[in-house]
Design a binder for these strands. Structure first.
Length: 589
DNA sequence: CGACGCTGCGCG
DNA sequence: AAAGCGCGCAGCGTCG
């Protein structure tokens, strides 16, 4: 329905909703006539944000969920609405990050987030299957009308009032629920809402890929794959699909008659994963070739061949950072996943070299060292562990010295390695069996080792005991900042299920607090960049690290700022150590 | 033909 | 009896 804009009654209590997608709108005059200054909150919603580089063509807006206006951006210049939109009050919507990318495409400054019902639903209950507008409406509002997913432009236009009403109702409900959990409301206000615009900018900016470099690499890797294939067929004396675990197991254990002694069995037969291949390595030369084939084929299929197809016309890759996936509150990255670009093997690391800073720019990267273990020390209030960190000890070496009762200088590499495994493993609820497998100790040695570690880190284990008790009583666990993860399986009568839940419960406050702090750091870094280094852009977050692209001349200063901001992001009893590096491509960082 | 579960493996 | 948390993606094999 269309209503003359100048007759619009916007009271200070009247939230406004803007629906944006990549289609039409009809009159900008109506929009510019609106008195946004009088509105305290603006509702904003977008489905089908334009693909990157495509100009969005449509903004739909309404007031109080009643009057709906459509604005045709193909007929008017976006700048005409710019002045008004710049002064928008804080906005409310469903998946604002998508809408914000539309605004960025229009060159419109991003308003503050007042509430996002997509992210809000996840904060209040991370377990629900999905947080689509349809699902939220059905489950939370008892809505039984037709779905809101995959609507055509016309549908969006005609149903905008309905969409507005649903979002407003969800907002009302969620803000009431959040107020009942003050820490969670604070987390939403201070972390989750502000990080939305930061992520929108990162996704919109993208990261440059040197496709020519990658094309050269592709030729080499293709040759390597075919070469390995032929060698493997030679040993097998037949061709088969190496990528099929079933066919591979048939070749190894039937045709070549390799021993299945100690080989893990899965639902579909003997496993051929990397660990099992390791056990067979000395038995037949084909094993090493298969390992090599796996490594090279993985790189080729997942990265070398896939990434170049996803670049825009500027040769930049735009990932999507998901806020509503990881149960711990971490981000996840999709289409493409830029949080799992190889680095551990030399060959894999080459892929990172293809990620480059633009002309005249540099990359600045910074990562927290032993972030999770430091946070475990804080959450458990393990003063000895905290003190070790604060005096800058090599934590794994020092732990080994304590467990084995040796002087620091008498700690062997093997001892340090074992201590490192347990230091990390403990955060995941590792068992003696897991430790023995990971270190090559006997089960007995592992049991003794963990026993001594328990004595040494009593506060840590007391904390874990208390945490599990709390989880059983409350049905959830939470981070330092009150982010919650429901833990229904913690009281399961199924041993396996229950044990799995206990391990997840132990890990969540640690991994989740890390995620909370990283988001806080990103928000602050984003602000500092826009204030002092306007030509610099945050590009990626990889759980404990941040990657920035900046003018070469600013690199040193940006690195310093990034390091300090991350280190001082939140006052904790433990010192946070951050390493910062500068390079022209990701491989050299 | 697409959807799905499984296997395997890339990252923190 | 099982045995380490959190993710996403690719290929295979099966099913409808």
């Amino acid at each position: 329905m269309q209503v003359p804009a100048n007759s619009l009654p916007i009271k200070s209590s009247s939230p406004v909703l803007v629906v944006g997608n990549n289609h039409l709108i009809d009159s900008v005059a109506k929009l510019t006539a609106l008195n946004f200054d009088a509105a305290e909150q603006l509702f904003i919603h977008s489905r089908a944000a334009g693909k990157h580089g495509k100009k969005p063509q449509c903004l739909i807006l309404s007031v109080d969920g009643q009057e709906v206006y459509t604005l045709d951006l193909t007929k008017i210049s976006p700048e005409a609405v710019l002045a008004k939109l710049l002064a928008l009050p804080p906005v409310i919507g469903h998946d604002l990050k998508s809408t914000y990318k539309v605004l960025l495409e229009l060159g419109i400054a991003l308003p503050k987030v007042a509430h996002d019902v997509f992210v809000g639903a996840f904060l209040l209950n991370s377990l629900r299957r999905e947080q689509t507008l349809t699902e939220l409406a059905e489950t939370d509002l008892g809505y039984d009308g037709s779905p809101f997913d995959d609507l055509t432009t016309d549908d969006v236009m005609t149903r905008a009032p309905e969409i507005v009403a649903v979002i407003r109702a969800l907002y009302a409900q969620q803000s009431k629920d959040l107020q009942a959990i003050p820490k969670l409301a604070d987390l939403a206000r201070d972390v989750e809402w502000p990080v939305i615009a930061v992520l929108a900018r990162m996704e919109y900016t993208g990261i440059q890929l040197d496709t020519a470099y990658l094309a050269k690499f592709a030729v080499e890797i293709d040759d390597a794959v075919s070469d390995l294939e032929q060698q493997i067929y030679g040993y097998a004396e037949q061709e088969f699909n190496i990528a099929s675990p079933g066919q591979l197991a048939e070749i190894l254990f039937t045709k070549l008659n390799l021993s299945t002694q100690g080989i893990k069995k899965g639902k579909t037969g003997y496993s051929t994963d990397a660990k099992q291949l390791d056990k067979l390595r000395d038995k037949h030369p084909i094993i090493d070739l298969i390992s090599q084939y796996r490594e090279v084929a993985k790189l080729k299929n997942t990265y070398v061949d896939a990434l170049p197809k996803l670049v825009d016309d500027q040769s930049r890759l735009h990932t999507t950072f998901n806020l509503t996936i990881a149960q711990t509150g971490r981000l996840s990255s999709t289409d493409p996943n830029l949080q799992n670009i190889p680095t551990r093997t030399e060959l894999g690391h080459h892929i990172r070299t293809a990620f480059v800073a633009g002309p005249g720019n540099k990359f600045v990267s910074a990562d927290y060292s032993q972030f999770e273990l430091r946070l475990a020390a804080v959450l458990a209030n393990d003063t000895e562990l905290i003190e070790m960190f604060n005096r800058g000890a090599d934590i794994h070496q020092a732990t080994a010295a304590q467990v084995y009762g040796r002087e620091l200088e008498d700690v062997t590499k093997g001892m340090r390695q074992a201590a490192k495994v347990i230091n990390f493993g403990i955060l995941y609820g590792m068992s003696p069996h897991g430790l023995s497998v990971a270190t090559g100790m006997t089960n007995e040695q592992a049991v003794t080792f963990i026993e001594r570690y328990k004595q040494l880190r009593k506060p840590l284990f007391d904390y874990m005991d208390h945490l599990l008790e709390q989880a059983r009583a409350d049905g959830y666990v939470e981070t330092l900042f009150g982010r919650r993860r429901p833990m229904p399986d913690i009281t399961s009568s199924n041993f396996m299920v229950r044990q799995g839940a206990e391990r997840a419960a132990i890990n969540m406050p640690i991994q989740g607090t890390e995620a909370d702090l990283m988001k806080l750091a990103m928000i602050r870094v984003d602000k500092l960049l826009s204030d002092h280094y306007p030509d610099s852009r945050m590009l990626l977050q990889i759980h404990d690290s941040i990657l920035i692209e900046c003018p070469a001349a600013d690199a040193d200063a940006v690195a310093e700022m990034l390091k300090n901001t991350m280190q001082e992001i939140y006052e904790l009893p433990v010192r946070l150590d951050v390493d910062a590096t500068i390079a022209v491509n990701w491989g050299e960082l």
